[in-house]
Each structure stands twice: as C-alpha cells, then as structure tokens.
Design a protein around this nucleic acid. Structure first.
Length: 117
DNA sequence: ATACTGACTAATC
DNA sequence: TGATTAGCCAGTA
C-alpha cells in the first residue's frame, strides 16, 4: 500500500535526537486517522528500513513491543542519540518531540507526488 | 464476504 | 487528574 511507503519516507525524515508519535506520522502521510496502521507498518518492516525507535505513542511511551531483538534496544538507540528515556520507558515529548515545520511537511508532500504515491 | 486484530488517539467520565 | 470507551482502518484468517 502506498501508505506504507509514505510511512517509510516520513519516518526517515524524523531528525536524529527527536521522537515522533504514530498519529503525527499518520498526519504527515495525509491519513490523520491511521495511527494504528503506522504501527502496523513498522511492525514487520513493511515500511522499509526506518528508524522505528524514534516513533512513540502520543504520551511519549515506548510502546515498541517486541519490535526490537532486545527489549531495551529502543531505549539504547534513543539514548545514544541524546534522548532521555525515563525509567518507565517514557520520553519527554516537550523536549524531544519532533516539531516538524510547515516547510518539512510540504517537502514530504512534494516527494509523495514525485513518486506518484 | 465477515470477523477479528492491533507499535493508536481523542473524547468522555 | 487518571481511567475507560469508542472510533479508526489495513491486514489476516
């Protein structure tokens, strides 16, 4: 599905050291109600090679169930990028949440059109 | 075709 | 506030 390709592109647009929510990704894909599908897309690499560790839920929790070989891999990767992860697998969205600019959103949209998806 | 399942969310209580 | 509920929609069986 095209949506998955979009998810891949959007995820790769998330800068290092930031996290984004599923809903946010869905929104940038032009499908505001597809947050669940974003998670599903990431689950079996359906969206291609993406920094899936930067995707958390709307409350900042690393719900990342079983997506990584080691349960702590996601936190490790985030920490390595400078993202603080609390003891209960949570990040401060206020500090590390990706604030995408309108410019970035348009750029993504343009790329979608380029690819005809 | 129908039913059930989620790496979700926003609204409601 | 924190917990529940009800939509959500592409996959899978």
């Amino acid at each position: 599905m095209d949506f998955y390709k979009r998810v891949g592109i959007v995820c790769r647009a998330v800068p290092e050291g930031c996290v984004a929510s599923y809903g946010q990704i869905a929104l940038l894909c032009g499908r505001p109600r597809n947050a669940r599908q974003v998670g599903y897309a990431l689950n079996k690499g359906r969206a291609g090679e993406v920094p899936a560790h930067r995707i958390v839920n709307s409350q900042g929790f690393l719900t990342g169930a079983l997506a990584f070989d080691h349960p702590d891999l996601q936190r490790l990767l985030l920490k390595k990028e400078g993202v603080e992860v609390s003891c209960e697998n949570r990040v401060d969205l206020g500090k590390f949440g990706w604030k995408n600019t309108l410019k970035e959103a348009l750029e993504l949209k343009r790329r979608f059109e380029e690819l005809g998806i």
